[in-house]
Amino acid sequence: MYPGFQFNGKVVWITGASSGIGEALAERMAARGSHLVLSARNESELQRVATLCRNAGAGDVIVLPLDVSRYDTMEAAAQQVLAHFGKIDLLINNAGVSQRSLCVDTDFEVYRQMMDINVLGQIALTQAALPAMIARGEGHIAVTASVAGKVGAPLRTGYCAAKHAVMGFFDALRTEVASDGLQVTTITPGFIRTNVSKNALAGDGKPTGTTDDDIAGGMNVDDCADVIIDGFEKGEPEIAVGIGPEMGLLELKRDNPVAAFQALEQMAAQIRQAS
Score class of each variant (00 low, 15 high):
C160N: 04
I92F: 10
E75K: 08
Q270W: 00
P237D: 03
D226S: 13
A225R: 00
R41A: 09
I62R: 12
A200Y: 13
F170Y: 05
L90T: 06
K150C: 06
N42V: 03
G168T: 09
G203F: 04
T175A: 09
T15L: 11
I123E: 05
E75F: 14
I62H: 10
G190Q: 06
T144D: 01
A263S: 10
E265L: 11
Y111V: 03
I239A: 00
D214A: 05
I134A: 11
I215W: 01
A30V: 01
F170R: 12
T157Q: 10
V119G: 05
T126Y: 03
S18D: 14
A124M: 03
N94C: 06
D72Y: 07
V12I: 08
A40E: 11
I117W: 14
D60R: 15
R32L: 14
N220S: 04
A17T: 04
Y159V: 15
P131Q: 08
R28P: 09
R54N: 07
P189L: 07
I271P: 00
Q266E: 05
A26S: 09
T106W: 01
G181S: 15
A58S: 15
L264S: 15
A216H: 00
G244I: 00
L182H: 11
L82C: 15
T185E: 07
E75A: 07
M114G: 11
G59M: 10
N93I: 11
F5Q: 07
A142T: 09
G244N: 11
T188G: 09
V63D: 05
A76I: 14
E233Y: 02
R174C: 08
A216Y: 00
S69M: 04
A274K: 03
Q47I: 14
V184M: 01
A26W: 06
S146K: 01
V110A: 14
G203P: 04
T208P: 13
I62K: 08
L82N: 05
I117T: 08
Q113L: 10
G205R: 01
N256M: 01
E23T: 11
F169C: 13
S146M: 03
G57P: 01
S44T: 13
K150G: 03
L182P: 05
A78T: 08
P3Q: 03
D171I: 04
F108N: 12
I21L: 12
T51Y: 02
S275R: 07
